[in-house]
């Protein structure tokens, strides 16, 4: 019988484009990796870490709040 994987007691809070929240972790991880793991194309989103815009090669950690903003089309 397999032992269950340990569940991290902390993780980063992710706010998705539809405003729903989910936890992800553990970090640290680059923004680009996180965005891809969540199923988004980095070209189509911008990311704020703790309220500040960051680049795809920035790093997010377990204590961070990460907001993913989809670039809406049209206009």
């Amino acid at each position: 019988m397999h032992k269950a994987l340990p569940v991290p007691d902390y993780c980063m809070k992710i706010i998705l484009p539809d405003k729903s929240c989910r936890d992800a972790g553990p970090g640290p991880v680059t923004v680009e990796t996180l965005v891809r793991d969540l199923g988004f194309d980095p070209v189509g989103v911008i990311v704020a870490r703790n309220g500040t815009l960051v680049t795809e090669d920035a790093v997010v950690e377990n204590t961070d709040e990460v907001r993913i903003i989809r670039i809406a089309h049209g206009g």
């Binding site: 640290p28 680059t30 500040t52 815009l53 960051v54 680049t55 795809e56 090669d57 920035a58 790093v59």
Partner: peptide
């Protein structure tokens, strides 16, 4: 990787990376 990459022109925190 650095947590916050720096601006190539002034070393301030970068907000955009032109790949």
């Amino acid at each position: 990787p650095v947590k916050t990459p720096r601006c190539d022109r002034c070393s301030g925190p970068a907000v955009f990376h032109d790949k």
